[in-house]
């Protein structure tokens, strides 16, 4: 086991312990070390750490013999990967067309302003990550906000304020 400093400078998040036996299980056992499954391995690693720690990516690179720069390319190409630690809560606002027409843009702006973070970013206390998602397919109940995988249908500024109030009280 070894520690690694975080990729992000502004955030104090300390060291992340990488469990190499767990990585081995994911890479070698679950996906048989198959390079074609690299994206799914990365998703599995991200499920463990909630982001892709640099050391874990380096280890993946060694095991499946794919150059680090190629994994970095993949990690920065696909929107679901994050190279920075995510907050305790992840709030995603659906910005699909139906949600957009019903004001999801304003909701993103509102959270951004109130929490002081741009979409895609995490608060400095690592409590909240604000994300946008291109349609979760629940257009009938637009606008939709997803907080930690729970759907909040027909959300509005009041829904968000409730959540942020609770968050700030924590």
């Amino acid at each position: 086991m070894s520690g690694t400093a975080c990729a992000c400078q502004e955030i104090e998040c300390g060291e992340i312990e990488i469990d190499y036996s767990l990585l081995d299980k994911i890479i070698r056992y679950d996906y048989g070390g198959n390079r074609e499954a690299m994206i799914m391995m990365m998703q599995a690693i991200q499920r463990v750490y909630r982001f892709l720690p640099e050391d874990a990516v380096k280890y993946l690179s060694q095991v499946i013999e794919v150059p680090l720069t190629k994994i970095y390319e993949v990690a920065t190409f696909y929107a679901s990967f994050s190279l920075e630690p995510k907050g305790k809560y992840i709030l995603s606002v659906c910005t699909g067309t139906a949600c957009h027409l019903r004001g999801s843009g304003g909701m993103v702006e509102h959270i951004s302003k109130r929490m002081g973070i741009a979409p895609g970013k995490t608060t400095s206390d690592l409590k909240l990550t604000l994300e946008t998602v291109n349609c979760v397919g629940a257009c009938a109940v637009a606008p939709v906000v997803v907080i930690d995988e729970k759907y909040y249908p027909k959300a509005n500024i009041a829904t968000l304020n409730d959540f942020m109030d609770r968050l700030n009280a924590e």
Binding site: T69, K70, Y72, E73, F77, Y78, A79
Partner: peptide
């Protein structure tokens, strides 16, 4: 091993 097109 060095350069790639990052981002989208």
């Amino acid at each position: 091993r060095t350069l790639s097109l990052a981002g989208r």
